[in-house]
Nucleic acid binder design. Structure first.
Lengths: 89, 89, 89, 89
DNA sequence: CTGCCATTTTACCGGC
DNA sequence: GCCGGTAAAATGGCAG
């Protein structure tokens, strides 16, 4: 048999499933990335400066993260104060 | 009015739409990325070596790309030799 | 003294040596890059299509890389299967 | 003969020579690049911050270019004033 | 926490 | 001279 599905305790079949699933997900990711590119292209075509836009997006992301950190901290405080149940419950 | 929609010929409204669309797409992308991570984690949990898996995925991608480039190159050759019409025709 | 050689525990002299060495290497690199450009220019002058040539070069590189990755992957498999000692031994 | 050296007026032999020369040059370039990497690595190993170093290198390059532009301009003025002969002579 | 790898950004080069 | 695409550099994220 030249298509062994198990060698040294490694299931080729199972490995194949994992790899193919990953590849499908990476395909999806590429498509989304393409979409992002398209949006920038469209914005550019109506006169926006994509470089600046990218900076804007980055800044907003940073701010959002900051905000979320604060929210998270707030949750921790609330939990510590018994105002809300802890996640593990 | 503190929400001008046009400054220096730049439409804030339009820009906002673009930026928000990009942000939604990047959100999607992050989710897909998370899914990929999860698959690797699951594979690892049943005994696969993540490093090897990543290399397998990379290699397969490389092969696919090479194949596609071959095709592309072939087209260029054909065009160069006048065997097929160029794209602009 | 206006040429301190150590500030905040950082040796200016040593840093200078590193930076200058890097600059010399980057100079070399630029020269090689120039040479590459010249070869393309010469090829073009005798009728070759630069774009096609670049794709040929890229494809050949891709193949070489793929081959090398294959080898590398094979080693990893061998190691995983205990057929050869790991690098750290 | 399955190794034609000329198709549609394209000399395969000549093309091969060009491509191989380019590949040799790119090989050289890679080696130089490796050397640069090594220098950064060494600098890092003795405590320098490579990120900052890269910025330093970039700045110095900019300054050098600025300087050369000025020199060039100076030459143009000199030529205009008949102080030195023009390049085309 | 460090090194490695992928992604992203920047710079370059050729074509129009 | 500008724009598009391609290659290099820099940054950021992930695993170990």
């Amino acid at each position: 048999m030249n298509k062994p599905t198990e060698i040294q305790g490694v299931s080729g079949t199972q490995l194949k499933l994992f790899v193919e699933k990953i590849e499908r997900l990476e395909e999806e990711k590429s498509e989304v990335q393409e979409n992002i590119k398209d949006v920038y292209a469209e914005a550019k075509s109506v006169g926006f400066d994509t470089k600046v836009m990218k900076q804007v997006v980055r800044l907003r992301k940073l701010k959002k993260e900051e905000y979320e950190e604060q929210e998270e901290l707030l949750d921790i405080y609330k939990q510590a104060l018994g105002m809300i149940p802890s996640e593990s419950n």
